[in-house]
Design a protein around this nucleic acid. Structure first.
Lengths: 243, 243
DNA sequence: GGAACTTATTGTTGGACCACAATGAGAGTC
DNA sequence: GACTCTCATTGTGGTCCAACAATAAGTTCC
């Protein structure tokens, strides 16, 4: 009898709030994390406790936790509870991996986004970057040909572009690139798998650096635009088959 | 008897594959989508059928569906089943919301970001936008002076810029601006509170539209850059506090 | 100090009920 | 007879519960 009561009450609450019980629970759990100032490594209350706190059943709490988990914010750990994590990378990667199966335009979209950004920051860099910063770019660029694996090459490639972003001196941009880094890395990896000529990448970067040295914003825009468009040409039409 | 068998088999499979039953189920469902060539609008089998197909319990299937749903790939529809959707936009916005702390970026950062983006999309718009699209911008721009409140003016202002972003034809950009819309709206509201001359905004937009009509990319870049920089001058230096 | 045991927690299952919407059967009307 | 409206049926997702298995931290015993 009481279980029926609970069920009916929850249903009413759901309809009233317009949100499902799972959404409500997820929101409360996120509020809890915020309110308790929990950081990476801290543990959440147990599912049963969360069930009491949120007023939802354990199953509902589990679905809510599953959502938060998909965001990479928590990592379940048997016996101890869910641990706050920054599984951002894996989460984003999974996110895009799941989407590549359905929509294939994502790669192109991201490359287009990069093109706008990395071409667009040219003016600021040309005007404000110090010679030391530009030479630091050159140093990073040199690592690419030393890479001993595709993955390492992709990481070094990304490091170069990330350093470039850093010169824009804009926190939102930096955050955004960090956020997108797993996907960009994956794009680079695929590109290098299809056309593993590291020297070309280095040369293209080198031209860009030269344009920066010369404080030539037009050359920078042209070269960067060409560089990113070039990468796009080697991306597969079909989705990347993951395992 | 058989259920016990199934349970034990699943447990074994889980330990062998190193993946949980939920992950396995999610993988099989995604395989199913791929194998059946399901497109947006098509329906998945019911949860109970998926339970039979994947060999997992309905609760496990539900958690798997919850993951896929968090990715924005499906949308549950009562009585019909889960429908394939392209909720990538909303999903990625949720990802942004869960991971990116906009409040830590300053107004200047966000305006700088906007400057890069909105100037950067000029080339694409000049080359690809139809005359009808440009006239639509003009129509939106006309609403600004009709606004009867600061908030309404800010919304109309944002609509103009959002429409501009839409012309870039890049989903990631559109998603990003949707995600940032509350903050941008706030910036615009503050700006208009400090300098409530709507005619100026409209005039600046009008010049930009004129540049687009003339397919003059240099004029566009100059005018847009000036327009955004101008707004920045009237903003306080505090960080963008959200909500 | 190390090994076996206890125990609390997550993982998974099966079953139950509710609200809701589509379907179709049946009554009523022309 | 054909059509329309009403309403019960039915099937679906949403939520809840109780139970057991697997796991690892904590505890006790040697």
């Amino acid at each position: 009898m009481e279980d029926t009561q609970v069920a009916r009450d929850n249903t009413v609450a759901r309809r009233a709030g317009g949100r499902s019980a799972v959404d409500t629970a997820a929101g409360r759990i996120l509020d809890l994390i915020r309110a308790r100032q929990l950081n990476v490594g801290d543990v959440l209350p147990t599912e049963r406790e969360l069930s009491e706190i949120t007023g939802a059943s354990r199953n509902t709490v589990r679905e809510a936790l599953r959502t938060i988990r998909t965001y990479g914010l928590i990592e379940p750990k048997p016996r101890v509870g869910a641990v706050l994590a920054n599984g951002q990378s894996i989460a984003i990667q999974n996110f895009f991996a799941a989407h590549m199966d359905v929509s294939r335009s994502s790669f192109a979209d991201i490359q287009g986004f990069r093109r706008i950004i990395e071409v667009g920051i040219g003016d600021h860099i040309v005007l404000n970057a110090t010679s030391e910063q530009i030479e630091a770019l050159d140093e990073i660029n040199g690592r690419i040909v030393d890479s001993r694996s595709i993955e390492e090459a992709a990481e070094n490639d990304f490091s170069f572009h990330m350093a470039l972003i850093g010169l824009a001196d804009n926190r939102m941009l930096t955050d955004m690139y960090s956020f997108l880094s797993p996907v960009i890395l994956r794009i680079m990896t695929i590109g290098k798998e299809m056309r593993p000529v590291l020297a070309d990448t280095r040369a293209a970067h080198g031209e860009i650096i030269a344009a920066l040295r010369a404080r030539d914003r037009l050359a920078y825009a042209y070269l960067m635009s060409r560089h990113l468009d070039f990468a796009l040409r080697f991306l597969p039409e079909e989705p990347a088959s993951e395992t």
